[in-house]
Simulated scan of single mutants.
Amino acid sequence: MKRFSLLALKLFVGLALVSCESVSDLPPIENEQQFGEYLLGPGDEVRVTVFGQPELTGSYLVSDSGEIAVPLIPGVEASGVTADSLAERITAELQSAEVVLDPAVSVEVRTYRPFFILGEVAGPGSYPYVSDMTVLTAVAIAGGFTDRGRRDLFEITRARDGTTLQGQAGPEVRIQPGDVIRVLERYF
């Protein structure tokens, strides 16, 4: 019986160390200020205002293909650009299609795409993003930690400029829309 207990203990400690190593090997995820302006992506909702053109003004959802469908012009690529760049693209499309001679367009983000949280939280899933959220705020929105949830180190997967970044983060790191947060399990 002692031999079995010792083997079980070694296996448990080995698994704990392996899981800790995988997260600690990941590079740290930095706060969002270093990334500059927010880039739109599928799931974001934008408010497009074409001054003097109420039939073109409205809220549009960035589709899975990364476009928005503004009336009278073909789909406008919105994914991966800022709100200001999208306004410039819509202006160019309206002029090109000769729909409006001298359009004045503004774009603002109305609703950000959700963030996702999984692992050791009470309510894993998808939640609406709120500006200036931290990892700890996201955990609170998801119902808090489970009894086994690790509170000092998290794993974040983030899409940025067409690539996927995966890294470790502390509770104070700001998250971005579309981030996937994994709350790790603590073993002791």
Rank of each mutant, 00 (worst) to 15 (best):
D147L: 12
G125E: 09
L153G: 13
A78V: 02
E37D: 15
A69D: 14
T137N: 15
E88P: 10
L26G: 04
I29T: 04
R151N: 14
V109D: 05
S65H: 13
P27I: 00
I73F: 08
E98C: 08
Y38D: 06
G58N: 11
Y129L: 05
Y129P: 01
A78G: 05
V50M: 02
V76A: 11
T49P: 06
L153F: 10
V81A: 10
E120C: 04
G66Y: 02
Q53N: 13
R113L: 05
S126K: 13
G52S: 09
G123M: 06
F115G: 01
I141Y: 14
G75R: 07
A87D: 01
Y38N: 09
S131Q: 11
A97M: 08
V70F: 04
I68A: 07
V107Q: 00
P54Q: 11
A87V: 00
V81M: 08
P28I: 02
S59K: 07
A140Q: 13
L118V: 11
D161T: 10
P27K: 09
G80E: 08
R113D: 02
M133P: 00
L72S: 14
P28N: 06
P74D: 09
G58W: 02
G144P: 05
R160P: 08
V135W: 01
D25F: 03
E55G: 15
E93T: 07
A142Q: 08
D84P: 04
A83L: 00
V107A: 00
I117Y: 04
G75Y: 07
R160Q: 14
E32H: 11
L56E: 04
L56H: 02
G58H: 08
P124M: 03
R89L: 04
Y129T: 07
E45W: 01
P27N: 09
D152F: 08
P42G: 05
T157Q: 13
I141W: 05
V48E: 02
V48D: 02
V107I: 02
L26A: 10
V107E: 01
A92C: 05
D152K: 12
D147Y: 12
A159F: 12
S79L: 03
V105L: 02
E88Q: 15
A97K: 11
E108F: 03
R110V: 11
F116Y: 15
T146Y: 07
A122K: 11
I29G: 00
V121G: 05
L136I: 09
L86V: 08
E32P: 06
S96W: 03
Y127K: 15
G58A: 12
T164R: 14
E77Y: 06
L101I: 13
Q95I: 00
S65Q: 13
G144C: 10
V70M: 10
T82G: 10
S22R: 12
G143K: 09
N31M: 01
D152S: 15
D44S: 06
Y112E: 05
L153S: 15
V70N: 03
A104Y: 02
T163E: 15
S63W: 04
G75C: 03
V139Y: 00
D25L: 11
G80M: 07
V107F: 00
T164C: 10
S96Y: 05
S106C: 05
G66M: 01
Q53P: 03
S85D: 14
Y129H: 09
Q53H: 10
P71C: 07
D147S: 15
I29C: 03
E37M: 01
E88I: 06
V46Y: 00
S63H: 12
G123I: 00
R113H: 07
